[in-house]
Design a protein around this nucleic acid. Structure first.
Lengths: 347, 347
DNA sequence: CCCCCAATTTGTAACGTTACAAATACGGTC
DNA sequence: GACCGTATTTGTAACGTTACAAATTGGGGG
């Protein structure tokens, strides 16, 4: 069915025959090689436009060994609330005007996280890879470092060898969030953590612990559920917990769906969010600006993170050392918006 | 015996030299060609696994003209709430066990919708393409039909030539949603439509009009905003509208973020959702199960849609006619869950 | 008028794979 | 022992591109 298209597709040879030039000359003319006469370049370019020539990516790849592709491995947990959208927007912006294109590869839990990465390297599907959900001893990072394959992780590992990354300061986030809870009157704040295997789970835990210790309040680390748990499960678990003695009166919750679930659990327990039960969420989309009652939030700018990662991966491919390609995003300083309980996103 | 090859990526030649077989034989052995002796096939396969051989996709593409890639063009509006995730999950499931891989190409509004599609065709980046946000006279569909390039659209066009699609019955959705509003006591239902250029905007409009006419109630079609408008804008517009005389007392709203915005506007107007103001949303994720007060919803199973699209695109590539590859998803029948105001998702 | 240099252009080979035609080996038949 | 058929393997070419080396021009200087 695409035979017609195949026979029609112009190649360098087509242009060479039409112009009477050699294939090589056409190739170099289109590459704007200064060794080729100016008017030859123009003539070839015009001819190419006329016939709608587009280089065959597969052939270019085979010959040059470059794919001109940056691969983003996206986990459904990430994507659920605009993580994907925002980060993709940022990377796309960074890649604009370069020959590179972004390709998103979905990674569902049933396949090992390594599998996607090693497939990309082994089958040569991209020149660089970006991924998230980094672990302290991350197998993907170890592998990629060993293979010398360019990558940027969203999140840090704790490996000895330095590697490029873009991360959000989840320690500062959790610390600030907890302090806001305490300032609002919480005397027994709790935190809902990401799965413990991720580096940023520890960061959040430490930020939380640092704040509760400093203020000498009781605290609770929610068990059995994580930010990745299904919303229903989070809601049910919280509902159960709030009905028992010594229940928390505040929650730090770095996810939007889980934030909604927490509000639902509080409401269903007869508590009034903002009065009996305080919540601080991490905001990565505009979603929470529509939630009533209003809930305090701290913003994480994923588009900015994506832009950094896009620029970093290009520089990494160009050979820059890992040490120069590390960036830690800090949450917006609440002191700068003193009259507001919510750190607003600049939408 | 192997020299500098050791550090390089292994190719067919590597295995050929190691085994003493010809490159062709190795190629065919790995393809499980029955012309090759069974034990040769096994030996080659074992050797390939040992050296970690993976075929070079670029070379395969160049030689065979097949990319083994299905491209999904994803618009940020789609992705905002799990559209991407769900549909990707479905397509991935459909492609499992085939040589095809899904590649997601983000499409931001600043580039023409056509641009991505024509790049995929011209540069031969995929064997088939899936996209959404279909228009009655859709330029992408016209182009792809003309080029004979396999595609599946999410949504129908109104072109004369039949084409493969998977669609959700938005007429039935809007009709049912409106009837639920009326049954709940709404005497002046309103609807927030998608941008009018999309086919499914008309479908929803007709479903809505059909229901309000049949029941002889007043109605309102919200202007100035669409389901694609920023949440803030939707909230502000609704808030303004609810303060004026003759305000609607119900809303059909086929989006989750906009549904939240509508609830916020109602609450901020002093209305009690579910009593003074009725809302029916389209539910594509678990999000709304956490929203309080609870809101009626009708489910659209995007994972199922994705699975259909995945199977369809493979069959289309295999040459099946368009007429055999058309599927209309119907919303779950409310009669089947009589005691419930909400059509629940099977999560 | 020849030689040489710079400016252009050209030819050849190769990237890794597979389609196709051809070659080889091995029994079994007559 | 020559012949044939089947099973298996091999060699050659090509997909479209670019790197590299070589060839071809056109002047300008001697």
């Amino acid at each position: 069915m695409n035979k017609r298209q195949a026979s029609q597709r112009p190649t360098l040879r087509t242009i060479a025959q039409m112009s009477g030039l050699a294939v090589t000359t056409v190739s170099r003319a289109l590459a704007d090689d200064p060794h080729i006469a100016q008017d030859t370049r123009e003539k070839v370019r015009k001819l190419a436009d006329e016939v709608g020539y587009a280089p065959d990516r597969a052939a270019q790849r085979l010959r040059t060994g470059k794919t001109n592709v940056i691969s983003l491995i996206l986990n459904p947990h990430d994507e659920i609330l605009g993580f994907g959208t925002s980060i993709i927007r940022g990377i796309t912006a960074a890649l604009r005007g370069t020959p590179y294109h972004l390709v998103v590869m979905p990674d569902f839990a049933d396949s090992e996280p390594m599998e996607q990465v090693s497939r990309i390297v082994r089958n040569h599907l991209a020149d660089g890879v970006i991924f998230s959900r980094t672990e302290p001893d991350d197998a993907r990072i170890r592998y990629l470092l060993e293979m010398g394959f360019p990558f940027i992780s969203h999140g840090r590992s704790e490996l000895a060898t330095p590697h490029p990354f873009v991360d959000y300061d989840n320690y500062a986030f959790a610390r600030q969030a907890t302090e806001r809870l305490i300032a609002a009157g919480s005397v027994r704040p709790a935190i809902l953590l990401p799965p413990r295997r991720f580096t940023f789970a520890n960061h959040q835990l430490h930020g939380f612990m640092s704040a509760v210790r400093e203020h000498g309040v009781a605290h609770e680390i929610l068990t059995d559920i994580t930010l990745d748990s299904p919303g229903e499960q989070i809601e049910a678990r919280l509902l159960a917990r709030l009905g028992l003695p010594g229940a928390p009166d505040g929650l730090v919750c770095a996810g939007e769906v889980s934030g909604l679930a927490a509000i639902a659990a509080a409401v269903d327990s007869g508590l009034v969010p903002g009065r009996d039960f305080h919540i601080v969420v991490k905001q990565t989309s505009t979603l929470f600006s529509h939630v009533r009652p209003r809930v305090a939030s701290i913003y994480e700018d994923l588009t900015e993170a994506g832009e950094h990662m896009g620029h970093f991966i290009l520089r990494r491919i160009a050979g820059e050392p890992a040490e120069a390609l590390q960036f830690l995003q800090v949450p917006p300083d609440p002191a700068e918006t003193p009259g507001d309980t919510t750190t607003r996103a600049p939408f």
